[in-house]
């Protein structure tokens, strides 16, 4: 009789532990600031990149503007258009307040994403979307500042020289002080929900 009780107790503990682990995972992965130490959450990510029109863009130059930032690459046929489309839908939900939000696409593929390609790509999603790139070192530093991971796949395609890049699929919301206040993904957050978050940040006078 004792064994079943112990087994049941162990099973119950495992279930509780698993539930905690899942909720902890969700909390740290989806809820902007609560899952990371306050100091880290408050430190704005720093970066220095170049816009597709040649302008230099740094974290400091974007201060004062609420930003939506997504890292990706133009050769990505599925996820990047999905997430940038979600960004566009979110801005559409905002109405006139959208003008106070800067949409930004940062390429993690500086080798292939030329300024000309990036300009056309960003404009296809939103007329005000800023497309940023830089030297491989600058792009790596920017990604590190946001905790974005990207790695070139070993070419498996039959197309010689072709490769894809695995990458973090998060859209970052930066407040006017340049701090990351939300980490979002189209799979978890609707454009309506994202728009409500942005309205709270960008709705008032700057």
């Amino acid at each position: 009789m004792k064994i079943p009780i112990i087994t049941t107790a162990v099973a119950a503990i495992l279930v509780i532990a698993a539930a905690w682990a899942v909720s902890e995972h969700r909390r740290t992965h989806h809820d902007g600031r609560s899952g990371i130490p306050a100091a880290e959450a408050d430190a704005p990510p720093e970066f220095a990149l170049t816009a597709s029109d040649g302008r230099s863009v740094t974290a400091a130059s974007l201060r004062g503007t609420v930003c939506l930032i997504y890292f990706g690459f133009t050769t990505c046929p599925d996820v990047c258009p999905t997430e940038l489309g979600w960004m566009m839908r979110t801005l559409r939900q905002l109405g006139p307040i959208a003008d106070a939000v800067q949409p930004i696409f940062i390429s993690v593929d500086p080798e292939r994403d030329t300024p000309a390609k990036l300009s056309a790509y960003a404009a296809a999603f939103h007329p005000r979307m800023l497309a940023l790139t830089g030297t491989p070192d600058q792009v790596k530093a920017a990604a590190d500042a946001f905790g974005v991971v990207y790695r070139k796949q070993t070419p498996v395609s039959q197309q010689p020289g072709f490769y894809l890049i695995d990458h973090t699929m998060t859209t970052f919301v930066l407040d006017r002080e340049g701090r990351i206040v939300h980490r979002l993904a189209s799979a978890d957050t609707t454009p309506e929900q994202a728009a409500a978050m942005l309205r709270a940040l960008a709705g008032g006078a700057p």
């Binding site: 599925d78 991971v149 790695r151 498996v156 894809l164 695995d166 973090t168 699929m169 998060t170």
Partner: peptide, 14 residues
């Protein structure tokens, strides 16, 4: 096929 890696990194594979 698109899949989500354990670290939240999106992966695409044949």
């Amino acid at each position: 096929e698109h899949a989500m890696g354990q670290d939240g990194v999106g992966q695409m594979r044949e």
